[in-house]
């Protein structure tokens, strides 16, 4: 197990390095795109351009620029914004991380619990009305644009109904956990539900199809032959092996969430997380902030994949020896 973890950790670091190079190349070395021109604005004179290049170090060879930026980002930790010169990037990112993690983890808890309950119930009562409900929820979940759903939720909870039924819904924004669990959870409730709706159905569907498959396996027949009750067979025997697929799906979606759906949700609900920070820095082409945000997001994605790999190996020991 430790050897496996070590190998995976090295692979994860290599992937992070490759991503940092890739992002850097996208912004600094795309043919026909000059970052200096973007910073200097439209119709800047040649002198201005040259001055901008020199002042931002864009006249140096590309690998030097990469090295300098990575040193400022990881070793000196004093990377500054291109737009608000002097504003340090890392404190901004550090402020944003708890917001994004609160959003994603809270939503994940909700949708995983919903999916477990629905999946197990659908397996226990397979062939009844629960099956089509889960299929429909799953398809709708993968078909709804998350930002649109968020806007509709805003419309319902913040508009006319805000004076009556939804008077208890606070205005948009994030409240830190240090101000108490209640306000924190209340401010995040609708963003959580919006995200959870998208994922709960498809997870329930995946779990159900895995569990129904597992119910035909020999070890289930064995468990039943030993006289174990049906619910215990479901929960202790079928559910555990079926979780493998759900866990690996979760790793992928966590990545997609941090980098995508969470970005859109944060923009829609006005949460100042990594996604919103990325979005704002993209608007004014603030390269150091973009780079830092993307790398932090990628770090969490790679970390999630790493944890999923370990969980996978723990749930299914055969994986360790591949």
């Amino acid at each position: 197990m430790w050897r496996f973890a070590g190998k995976r950790a090295i692979a994860a670091l290599l992937v992070l390095f490759a991503i940092s190079v890739l992002v850097f190349l996208i912004f600094f070395a795309t043919p026909g795109v000059d970052p200096a021109a973007r910073i200097a604005g439209r119709n800047a004179s040649q002198e201005t351009l040259a001055q901008v290049r020199q002042s931002f170090g864009l006249d140096q060879p590309i690998w030097v620029q990469y090295g300098v930026m990575m040193r400022h980002l990881f070793i000196d930790r004093d990377l500054t914004s291109f737009v608000n010169r002097g504003a340090e990037v890392i404190p901004q990112v550090q402020q944003a991380i708890p917001v994004t993690l609160s959003l994603v983890i809270g939503a994940a808890v909700i949708w995983v619990i919903l999916a477990l309950v629905m999946g197990v119930l659908a397996t226990a009562y397979r062939g009844t009305a629960i099956d089509p409900i889960i299929v429909v929820l799953g398809v709708i979940g993968v078909s709804l644009p998350v930002y649109w759903l968020g806007e509709v939720v805003n419309l319902v909870t913040q508009s006319r109904l805000h004076d009556t039924i939804f008077a208890w819904v606070p205005s948009l924004g994030y409240v830190s956990l240090s101000e108490g669990f209640g306000p924190w959870a209340l401010h995040l409730l609708f963003p959580w539900l919006t995200l959870a709706v998208l994922y709960a159905g498809i997870y329930a569907r995946v779990l159900r199809s895995e569990m129904v498959g597992a119910m035909n396996e020999d070890y289930i027949r064995m468990a039943r032959a030993k006289g174990i009750g049906e619910w215990r067979v479901l929960l202790r025997h079928a559910l555990r092996t079926s979780l493998i697929v759900v866990v690996s799906l979760f790793g992928l979606d966590f990545g997609a969430l941090i980098g995508g759906a969470a970005l859109l949700t944060e923009v829609v609900f006005g949460l100042q997380g990594i996604g919103k920070l990325t979005y704002d820095s993209l608007q004014n082409f603030d390269l150091p902030v973009i780079l830092a945000c993307v790398l932090y997001a990628a770090f969490f994605v790679v970390l999630a994949n790493f944890i999923v790999d370990l969980l996978y190996a723990w749930l299914d020991p055969r994986v360790r020896h591949v």
């Binding site: 692979a11 992937v15 992070l16 490759a18 991503i19 890739l22 992002v23 996208i26 912004f27 795309t30 043919p31 026909g32 795109v33 990545g255 997609a256 941090i258 980098g259 995508g260 759906a261 970005l263 859109l264 990325t278 993209l282 082409f285 973009i290 993307v294 997001a297 990628a298 994605v301 790679v302 994949n305």
Partner: peptide, 25 residues
Amino acid sequence: DVLWAFPVYLLAICLSVVLINSSLT
């Protein structure tokens, strides 16, 4: 593997921001 670990939306957003306002040859 690298593209896989790169959040899709983020990659698409990065590429779009760089390319969308400039003509590309």
